[in-house]
């Protein structure tokens, strides 16, 4: 009885949360005719900038120093293996989303890669598949939604997780459900694993992020635009629409005419 009631309570709570989330999302949808085509919809910019600033502080004071220490202590080949290992655990995410985007070749490749690297690459520490002409291709739920025409919605900066948008934030939840392995290992192992994965990932970006901070005049906009462009490229597998191409490369292009 009690269990049933508790179960009901959870569903009700969840439903309220979903409705609230959708309501917010709907209010935030860009009104037609406002904003330029080339800029990202960002009605939450003041809040986003605050969260962005918070994330930057966390990075500068905690994550980046940790990643530097890791980079200093751990030899490059070991770092490569750590990256390979976690990439290999993404197999089910890549496989499922390739399948959901009706890309059988990519799904097959993800499967073969996983088998090759798990068996021939000592549990994923090595990546023989890439050497054999089967490079890694990331697919995720956010990309799948985008592939089937779901618009990104307003830009969001998630605390600690960084740049996102409504569509990709929903996708993230799906991705973590698809990662499966945390269900099979004790909590402290998957927590430790996540910490290692994040530090290793950050270490691989040491030069890039430092360079980006210096190269940008408005780092918030730099990240927002880079995120938007990168996600678009991933969803369209690198193809650019004719209109976008014209807007970007025609020196006489003027959308106000």
């Amino acid at each position: 009885m009690q269990a049933a009631r508790r179960g009901y309570g959870v569903t009700k709570q969840r439903r309220t949360a979903i409705i609230a989330f959708l309501a917010v999302a709907l209010c935030l949808l860009p009104k037609p005719g406002t904003g330029q085509a080339e800029t990202v919809s960002d009605p939450l910019q003041p809040l986003n900038r605050k969260i962005f600033w918070f994330n930057e502080k966390v990075d500068v004071y905690v994550l980046e120093p940790t990643a530097r220490a890791y980079d200093h202590v751990v030899p490059d080949p070991v770092q490569t293996s750590v990256t390979n290992f976690f990439n290999n655990l993404y197999f089910l995410v890549n496989f499922t989303n390739s399948a959901l985007q009706a890309k059988p070749t990519d799904a097959g490749r993800a499967l073969v890669r996983f088998l090759l690297n798990t068996v021939g690459g000592m549990g994923g520490l090595f990546d023989p598949a890439t050497s054999l002409g089967l490079p890694l291709k990331f697919e995720d739920v956010g990309q799948t939604l985008g592939y089937w025409g779901v618009p990104p919605g307003p830009y969001l900066v998630l605390p600690l997780l960084g740049p996102s948008n409504i569509r990709d934030a929903v996708g993230r939840a799906g991705d973590s459900a698809l990662r499966v392995y945390p269900y099979f290992v004790p909590g402290y192992v998957s927590f430790g694993g996540t910490v290692l994965e994040v530090v290793d990932f950050r270490a691989s970006l040491l030069g890039d992020i430092e360079g980006a901070r210096k190269a940008s005049l408005d780092y918030y906009i730099f990240v927002r635009d880079a995120y938007d462009q990168r996600r678009r490229a991933l969803i369209n597998d690198g193809t650019v629409s004719k209109e976008q191409e014209k807007e970007l490369y025609d020196v006489d292009y003027d959308d106000s005419e």
Binding site: I221, R224, R230, A233, L234, L248
Partner: peptide
């Protein structure tokens, strides 16, 4: 223009300069 992993230098600077 130089496009790195799908991110175009022109487009990226354009949005920053647009904002400024």
């Amino acid at each position: 223009d130089v496009t790195v992993e799908g991110v175009s230098l022109v487009a990226n600077f354009r949005s920053q300069f647009q904002e400024i």
